[in-house]
Design a protein around this nucleic acid. Structure first.
Lengths: 220, 220
DNA sequence: GTCTATATTCCGATAGAC
DNA sequence: GTCTATCGGAATATAGAC
């Protein structure tokens, strides 16, 4: 019912677009204002500073993450739950990829954001662990209980820095949605050696599914 | 024979220390000069700008990397070659950890450094692949040939962003050498599910070895 | 809510004396 | 080789009119 974006929302939306396009660090409040055709003073009427903008964007991201990840139905296939999870995580990562393109730098400049991020990540870790345990319970993977937490961290690291890795490998070619989805394939490869013989063909099937999504463009 | 450091070398050494301590982005040419008790003008006599300093530091790093990694003796144990490799990589990573703490940002600001980094990484990737092939040939791990390159990328990603990951997880507690060595353990965990039954105990032994090194302080 | 104008701060970099 | 002095540039942020 609210078709009109208030200036505040326009600033947030334009900031996301600019950040994704040219990098958060390169975009100043002046750029954002100029891009929208408003004055810097106006922008500072709505936000205290750039940190404030980034913080609110992250809040929006975190809210989407929570909303979109439904607890898997008890009777659901464990592998389907994994796929659904990867879909949500990577889709949101694409929409806010500026954040992941320079995570340590962005966090280093804002303690409040740091706290917020840590809180969200704690939830993510628990989520990943529970997915791993479900996969083990359903005999999809075989893994020692004591290794689960470490493995979860490795997965999280891979996901978190996939975009950064792409940028270091090919800094010139811009990130696109297909290249982001190649990260899913890397995650699946991490799972593969843990897979039980019976589950392997189903993982292969998942791989093919995501290979499709990732094939639009060459990046790896 | 040359005990005295020339000003140029003192600048490089002080820069590395400051960068590691407070982050490359936060350190300006003024800070470096002030830290050494010399004038900014003097610094600019020796270096064109900060990029120039970072570039020369990277050159030094790359040279050390090449020098210290000897091609493994043909008769050597494949696992020993892996351990030696990990030792060198992580030790140098520790000495230059400012670089890895903000890699995408640093590279984004300097195309020449980008090229240099890409060149070095190409060599690293080939090296990792050859270690993996040796491990496979000696029946230490079991892996499909088609998966080797992808797996090598995953290892490289994990290693490259291990320090960044630490910083996002606990931005307050400073990085130390022990926490860096926990990255080695994460790498070994990646290998574990690929290990053949006969090799598993030797990998466990390696894990214990690095667990010792990583135990000085808690970080994970 | 929005604009114009401006104050401040800080960094990068150079000129010229010693 | 080193210093002092300084300028230009850019970004942050605010004051005050409309």
């Amino acid at each position: 019912m609210e078709k009109k974006l208030r200036t505040k929302d326009k600033i947030l939306q334009a900031s996301i677009a600019l950040f994704n396009e040219v990098g958060e660090r390169q975009v100043t409040t002046n750029h954002i204002a100029a891009h929208l055709g408003i004055s810097p003073g106006n922008l500072y009427y709505h936000f205290r500073n750039k940190e404030d903008i980034v913080r609110q964007i992250f809040k929006e991201y975190a809210k989407l993450l929570e909303t979109r990840i439904k607890p898997p139905a008890a009777e659901a296939e464990a592998l389907d739950a994994l796929a659904e999870y990867l879909d949500v995580v990577f889709e949101l990562m694409w929409r806010f990829h500026f954040f992941y393109a320079n995570l340590p730098d962005i966090l280093a400049r804002d303690r409040a954001l740091q706290q917020d991020y840590a809180r969200v990540q704690q939830g993510v870790l628990e989520r990943v662990v529970s997915v791993l345990k479900a996969l083990k319970a359903k005999a999809v993977i075989e893994i020692a209980d004591e290794d689960i937490a470490d493995f979860a961290h490795s997965i999280k690291l891979l996901v978190t820095f996939w975009i950064s890795y792409l940028k270091t490998q090919a800094p010139d070619s811009p990130i696109n949605q297909a290249s982001v989805y190649q990260g899913v394939l890397k995650v699946l490869l991490l799972f593969k050696p843990y897979a039980t013989a019976q589950a392997r063909p189903r993982i292969t099937k998942l791989q093919q599914h995501y290979a499709q999504l990732a094939m639009t463009e060459q990046t790896s």
